[in-house]
Amino acid sequence: MNWNMLIFLYLAFAMSFSSFLAIISRNPVHAVLWVLVMILHQAFLLYTLGSEFLTAVQIIVYAGAVLVLFLFVVYMINLRKEERWKVFVRRSSYGFIIFLFFLYFFFKNLAFLTALGPAFKAQLPYDLSQGSNLLWMARYLYSHYLFQFEVIGCILLVVIFGAVFLLRKLKEVG
């Protein structure tokens, strides 16, 4: 057993354990924090696979933006009543059956799933020895996908403009 395997096992165990805790914890803030732990481990797992860009995205977008939104929602909605419920979802045993069903399919198609990764790596249109993932991504983003990149910029611009428009009318008209 080498170091890679040890690190992977630790990450896998930590991720599944923290996601389990996120589901069963009664306090919603605790649940969000457990999801944060899960996401940080996931980011590290992606880093061990050699995709540093996805690691950064994982931390900035998920840990930085999405979880803050979750916290806002948790603070805005009063969850006192729900916290006192004995059982949150009735008939959760059906969920367990569906879980077993998925588990069965997972193990049945294990060979297919494990072959997916190398197949994708063989299909990559660029050579990783010529530069890192980030470098290749930047190259593609500013040449082949320039138009799409600009359109995404337009979409973000429109969203900001629209929000300002609605707020301005709320202020001026009431």
């Binding site: 138009f147 799409q148 359109v151 979409i155 429109v158 629209g162 929000a163 609605l166 008209v173």
Partner: peptide, 23 residues
């Protein structure tokens, strides 16, 4: 991909235009 992004760019202003008549 361009088609999908164009679709988003077409729809998002319409959401705001619909919401703008809340007065």
């Amino acid at each position: 991909l361009t088609l999908y992004l164009g679709m988003e760019l077409m729809s998002i202003p319409v959401y705001f235009l619909i919401a703008s008549s809340f007065v």
